Amino acid sequence: MERRREKGLTQAQLAERLNITDRAVSKWETGKSLPDSSIMLELCGILDITVDQLLHGGREDGASGPAASPPRKTAGPRLPRRGEGRWWLAVLFSGGLLAGLLACFICDTALSGGLGWSLVAALSAGYGWAVLLPPAVLKRGGAAGSLLALSALTVPYLYGLSRLLGVGAVFTVGTAMTVVSLLFLWAGYAVFKRRGWNAVSLGLACLLLAGLTASVNGTLYLLGTTPPPDAWNGISILLLLLAAAVCFTWKRREDGAPGGG
């Protein structure tokens, strides 16, 4: 808290530079929690202190002012790298998925004398593995990894699935839905990445979901796969808009509360 104030930073400004919430900064300064090791070096660089100073809660002996330079890589305890220690989760996840696929191949071959439905299972398992592996392994950046996998692999997956099933609509309709959905997913990710988890972010997410619902309904109607949107579609959009209004109102109440800053 002392170093943050000397730097002329508010809790919100420090949180923004670290891509976290100001509530997390408040918990550090009140002793309710500690900074995550993955952002500790970055935090020390912003406050111009060493890792030792941060961990011991005070300046080093003989230091009368802020440190002259950010901590060197050799100073302080060794910090775990991103995703380190979670390799076992990737192995367990991949091994379980592979074992399930082998069981599918064996059952399919034994029952039908060849590979049929098990190819659909294999294609879907590979797609799911690529999408779910990043958040399972990475402590930070997992959501972005999943979105990148979705963006790169969903259309090829739909094409392969349509060929295996012999249903062309799986690819045409699915691709249209993918393009619309990915636009809103990336927009939602950008909101939470920029603002963190708070009432405003949840309100913006509700607005995005309302827009996504309207876009999906409209796209399906234009493709001729569904009838015109009805009252039930409008109710779902209205509920999302009401939820967004509640979130924004809640934020204003927090800002107006005594000591809210």
Rank of each mutant, 00 (worst) to 15 (best):
L79V: 11
L79F: 07
L79C: 09
P80S: 12
P80C: 11
P80E: 06
R81M: 08
R82W: 04
R82N: 12
G83A: 15
G83P: 03
E84D: 10
E84R: 08
G85D: 02
R86L: 08
W88Q: 05
A90L: 13
A90P: 01
V91M: 09
L92Q: 06
L92N: 04
L92T: 08
F93R: 04
F93P: 03
S94L: 06
S94V: 07
G96V: 09
L98E: 06
A99I: 15
G100W: 13
G100A: 13
G100N: 13
G100Q: 09
L102F: 09
L102N: 07
L102V: 15
A103M: 10
F105V: 12
F105Q: 08
F105R: 10
C107D: 09
C107K: 06
D108P: 02
T109W: 15
A110N: 07
L111K: 04
S112Q: 06
G113R: 06
G113T: 11
G114V: 11
G114C: 14
G114T: 13
L115D: 05
L115G: 05
L115E: 06
G116S: 12
W117Q: 07
W117M: 06
W117D: 08
L119R: 06
V120G: 15
V120E: 15
A122T: 06
L123G: 10
S124P: 02
S124I: 05
A125F: 14
A125H: 04
G126Y: 03
Y127S: 05
Y127K: 04
G128S: 14
G128C: 13
W129Y: 13
W129R: 03
A130R: 02
V131Y: 02
V131Q: 01
V131N: 02
V131F: 03
V131M: 03
L132K: 01
L132Y: 04
L133N: 00
L133I: 06
L133D: 00
P134V: 01
P134F: 00
P135R: 00
P135D: 00
P135L: 00
A136K: 04
A136W: 03
V137N: 00
V137E: 00
L138K: 00
L138I: 01
R140Q: 09
R140H: 07
R140P: 01
G141W: 00
G141V: 01
A143M: 11
A143D: 12
A144D: 05
